[in-house]
């Protein structure tokens, strides 16, 4: 943990300080740097697991949502790695309780040849309910992430993640269909 903090602390500290001064580009760089560091940490701990990227995204969401718990002037790296470690442990805890990944199971149930003549509702039915609902609200009904989140009782960041994952899954389905 200490070596992690030493190697990433300065860059992260500078980027976060600039971002908190209103530099939105610096915040994007901060998140990219954080993703890289967290990905490396997770890869060391769990290897080339197929879920590493999902975990990285969970960590980024958590880092973003809980950024108010980072006191100005305090080093970013210990805070960031503590959150990442927590998310990893939480991930293991969830997997311990539910070894079957329901999203993967649903995806496996989709036969590519069935998608040729489908409409958008049929496509959305292939997604997990939360993702499909998020896409309906934001991309069909035209609500903002905040409005959709308020309707479903979830935060803006969680809504963004649902939309993001749902759209990524739709792209995969569409790509397979074209092939």
């Amino acid at each position: 943990m200490d070596s992690q903090a030493n190697t990433s602390g300065d860059v992260l500290d500078r980027l976060m300080a600039a971002a908190r001064d209103g530099d939105s580009v610096a915040y994007r760089h901060f998140l990219a740097e954080a993703a890289q560091r967290v990905r490396a940490m997770l890869a060391r701990k769990i290897g080339a697991d197929s879920e590493v990227e999902d975990l990285v995204q969970e960590c980024l969401i958590a880092i973003h949502q809980k950024r108010h718990t980072l006191d100005p002037g305090r080093p970013v790296a210990p805070w960031m790695y503590a959150i990442a470690n927590y998310k990893l442990i939480d991930h293991w805890r969830k997997r311990g309780r539910s070894p079957i990944d329901l999203d993967d199971e649903a995806d496996m149930a989709v036969a590519p040849e069935t998608l040729a003549a489908t409409d958008i509702e049929t496509l959305l039915d292939k997604l997990p309910d939360a993702q499909a609902q998020a896409i309906r609200l934001t991309h069909i009904e035209g609500l903002t992430n905040r409005e959709a989140g308020e309707r479903l009782g979830v935060g803006v960041s969680a809504m963004k993640l649902r939309v993001h994952r749902g759209m990524a899954r739709l792209r995969e389905i569409a790509d397979k269909d074209r092939i």
């Binding site: 971002a19 610096a26 994007r28 990219a32 995204q57 980024l60 108010h68």
Partner: peptide, 22 residues
């Protein structure tokens, strides 16, 4: 990548946290 896309979405919120944490 999907992570880059997520970063772009999160970055639009900015780094300044909501006030009133305490």
């Amino acid at each position: 990548s999907s992570t880059d896309s997520l970063i772009d979405r999160l970055a639009t919120d900015g780094a300044t946290p909501r006030t009133g944490s305490l």
